[in-house]
Nucleic acid binder design. Structure first.
Lengths: 191, 191, 191, 191
DNA sequence: AATGAATGAGTTTTCATTCAT
DNA sequence: AATGAATGAAAACTCATTCAT
């Protein structure tokens, strides 16, 4: 087994363990027994339990970020938004692990970790806000501070994923996306 | 000091400590030294650290729940919705403690705790979904599964509060409520 | 058992263990099982293994320092020097523990510890050097840098104690003091 | 690189590392990274970390022993004693490594190591005692048990070297030798 | 001969909880 | 009711040593 494979294997085990037990209840013993590896080996690949969790987290943040593609303004924009949302829900609900780790464990472990989390949310929010601002300039998007607007939209993505995880439900991404599209197009209230 | 006062005092200390350190980094020592009380006394009032946290959490959930008043359909509905949102943001951002404890620490501590949290979110979601379903019946609210719709709306509330806490920002509840109202009325996109 | 007694008891156990195993081979487990106390109790009384060793060391340094009394120049000086030497050897060889800890374990554990050790040797050397300088002024003591002279004299004390410990010998303090007195009076060489 | 060269190189690296970190804080990792060699290679040349330290120690003891030349009674004896002392201080203070390893780290690591150290001190003491006994027979040296006398003299050598190392001072061998010579000739006290 | 990934026993330290006073 | 000394299970982490390549 090459070091790269070994690292990948251990990362996968760690991911599983952190997702099922959470950061604090997961012990290094759990991870190594899941990976079938000696204690020392763990520390050959990760500086600490903390660093291992960070690696898992980064991997997840990357996969989530990668799900969102830049909008090409020369093509059908609502369609691209829809596809982005679908990929995003896909990435967030491909397994139970991402929501647990990203939404329930990531915050509040330590300052350094919150640092990274802030970076992730900021990047996501800024990216969306930029797209919304562009949309405003082109007349596609209604008025309002694009940063606040971005948070509202992100909230509409996060909450269904979070609650589905909390209740152990399977999320029906399609229907959530449909409804989100409807809300974004027409709002919630009728006159 | 009466037992009730003592308990209230310890609860307040616990709340402060949990909010500033998080559940796992907060120790019983921190709480008792904040309260100026002996170690044994803590266990006279709470069965465990876990139970103490639960008490803090319940208190917070109650105060948040109390912020939302039932809608009186004979009076101006949009106005009442708006007032509910304003009180809700107020309750959530009165201090830094609520968002930290409720949004960053509460989930994932243990199964029993998640139980309680599920109850809270379920109650909130069902309450909102019921209101929305009533609105649909009266023609005020657009189509769509009221439970999903409720989650989207809750997400719009949670995310701004969460991010503001994460970045240590002061949340301008007014402008968020304004924008939320606009989104709920007209959506985000324009034709 | 009062906290003071408990601390004294643990200090005594630690002293025994450190002396028989040395700092590095002694484990906290050894100390607590010697003291018949739970692991946590150890940490109620000492911040760390290191701090515990420091406490043992300080106690020893104090007892050694206390063995040397100031010289009263109005009384028989050689006699007082002799009595100091006798008490010093007494303090250093009352048990095996002092030489082992002080001469074989103390140096080189960490920078902070060396700090303390330097202080001890400096104090001892300066004290002796001051006495020697006074002696020079009064014509009792021959010429030469008193600090260097002090080190030579200290070496004559340390080496017999060290070697006796190394070989597990009982040191005959009387004969060493006699010979030291002779060397100090007349030197080693004859013409 | 021939095996002999390799071994010499690793010994040199080990010496440097042990001297700067001490036996316990020095790790095999430190030594191999200083030597630029793989972990396994270390164990091709030394049976253990302990054995490696022993090798370093032996080398040092040999170089120190070699500094003392036998006295030729047909030539100027005080002059030869003086030269021996000068060479000895030279050997002990050529670098910081010898005093640290020999005087602060060597004792108390384990029984086997103390064995070797005992041998070294015994050899040195016996050698000096023999010379002193010869001197007594020839009337050059005053009365007293030659073994005890030898320890006193050794102490006068060790202490200045030890303290100079402890304080990080440069030792002025010349002045120490001068003063030692004076003490050995005339003692410390005056009448 | 050289390499370096893997090993696991052993260590220190933490901290929620108990209970005699 | 209040105290705080004592407890001990559990956890993270280290590092000398091995051995297949």
């Amino acid at each position: 087994m090459t070091p790269d494979d070994r690292r990948a294997q251990m990362l996968a085990s760690a991911r599983t363990v952190f997702a099922s037990l959470g950061y604090h209840r997961a012990s290094v013993s759990d991870i190594i027994s899941e990976a079938g590896v000696a204690r020392g080996t763990f520390y050959n690949y990760f500086e600490s339990k903390r660093a291992c969790f960070q690696a898992v987290l980064s991997e997840m943040m990357d996969s989530v970020s990668a799900a969102v593609h830049p909008i090409d303004v020369t093509r059908d924009i609502p369609q691209q938004v829809r596809e982005n949302l679908e990929r995003l829900f896909q990435a967030l609900t491909a397994d139970d692990e991402v929501p647990r780790v990203l939404f329930a464990e990531a915050a509040g472990i330590d300052e350094e970790g919150d640092q990274g989390l802030r970076g992730f949310y900021r990047a996501a929010t800024v990216r969306l806000a930029t797209a919304l601002a562009t949309g405003q300039a082109l007349g596609f998007v209604g008025e309002g501070d694009p940063m606040v607007l971005a948070r509202l939209v992100l909230g509409m993505v996060r909450e269904p994923v979070f609650q589905a995880w909390l209740y152990g439900e399977e999320l029906d991404a399609q229907s959530v996306v449909d409804l989100m599209a409807s809300v974004m197009r027409d709002g919630v209230l009728r006159r």
